[in-house]
């Protein structure tokens, strides 16, 4: 098939779709007003946890199933994937939270205090118990985005700032910017921070369960950690509040007091695009295919959605996440 495809948006969805279609030999143009991946895209602020099992705590079934494609996909695309698993812990009095989390997820083993110390020595003595999700992984989103973009460009894909006059077949991956057309899309605000804490050594993402301030910490290497993330029903894409940041920092400090000496490198905020059930959608309108609503699962679900777009365009296979039912409100 030699039809030319225009991809709108070079965030994680657009770049994954482009990578998938380019690999299948399609001619592409990627349109994004910004020349490089950067803070304008919500995926810039992502954690990069490939944690399909942990996400099952609140996400619906397809997230866990489709998310299991992610780690292999990213590795095939040439992105460094840390197969270190992930940890879930809780402070003493919130132990019931850990039991609930364990009940609602699969793919974990319960670690005793000593077993936790074996794999994450700096957490020795801080938690009596932890859940270990051995098959989960993580990546560094900003590296991943840059890598996909550079690889695409090297393979001859054109990146342009404005849409060509005759776009033809278009895959719209603009995230929240597509709200002008996808009226049932909403924003869910998230705030995060990046810290440098050279004294802290963690090999894998750690989630701290707390009834009010759930937190995760993802190691980025070189003593840098990403701290996330709030989840607020608001489309606001700026303005990190003191309350949110205080909650994130307090939780980090509770996880390990050495974070008290951390240098604050960055405080970030953006809004995730989501539909009412927080599941992604592929939607077709004439010559345009919309891929959107990845919520907090951009890096986890883009690979599966990119595959589905490829199968739709080249094999005519109707994707599982296609909504023909026009569920817009």
């Amino acid at each position: 098939m030699s039809e030319h495809v225009t991809i709108l948006g070079a965030g994680v969805v657009g770049l994954c779709v482009a990578t998938e279609l380019a690999a299948r030999g399609m001619a592409l143009t990627v349109v994004d007003p910004n020349p490089r991946p950067g803070p304008h895209a919500c995926s810039w602020w992502a954690a990069g946890m490939l944690a399909p099992f942990c996400e099952a705590e609140t996400a619906e079934e397809p997230v866990t199933r489709l998310g299991q494609e992610a780690a292999d996909w990213w590795a095939r695309a040439g992105v460094e994937v840390a197969h270190e698993g992930s940890l879930v812990v809780t402070l003493g009095r919130d132990r019931a939270e850990l039991d609930r989390f364990a009940r609602r997820t699969i793919g974990h083993q319960s670690l005793s205090r000593d077993a936790l110390a074996d794999i994450e020595p700096q957490l020795d003595g801080r938690f009596d118990r932890a859940l270990f999700f051995a098959d989960e992984a993580h990546i560094t989103p900003r590296h991943a985005l840059g890598h996909l973009r550079d690889s695409l460009e090297a393979s001859g894909v054109a990146f342009v700032g404005i849409s060509p006059a005759t776009a033809g077949l278009t895959v719209d991956c603009r995230g929240l910017a597509a709200q002008d057309v996808l009226t049932d899309l909403r924003g869910v605000k998230g705030e995060m921070a990046v810290l440098r804490a050279p004294d802290v050594v963690l090999r894998r993402p750690v989630r701290l369960l707390h009834p009010r301030y759930p937190l995760y910490i993802v190691p980025r290497g070189d003593g840098v950690f990403m701290l996330g993330a709030t989840q607020i029903e608001s489309g606001e894409r700026n303005r990190a509040t003191l309350r949110s940041v205080t909650e994130l920092f307090s939780a980090a400090y509770a996880l390990h007091p050495a974070f008290g000496e951390a240098e604050i490198l960055e405080i970030g905020v953006d809004a995730r695009p989501a539909f009412a059930d927080n599941l992604p959608r592929i939607r077709r309108r004439g010559d345009t295919i919309y891929v959107n609503g990845l919520f907090r699962h951009g890096f986890l679900l883009s690979p599966a959605l990119a595959r589905m777009v490829g199968e739709l365009l080249l094999e005519g296979k109707t994707p599982e996440m296609m909504d023909e039912n026009q569920r817009e409100r």
């Binding site: 924003g187 607020i232 608001s234 489309g235 009412a276």
Partner: peptide, 19 residues
């Protein structure tokens, strides 16, 4: 307070609640 994140920004969620 918790959900709004600014006076008008929670619009989509408020609409949902009203609906």
């Amino acid at each position: 307070r918790r959900e709004a994140g600014g006076e008008r920004a929670g619009g989509a969620f408020w609409d949902l609640v009203r609906q």
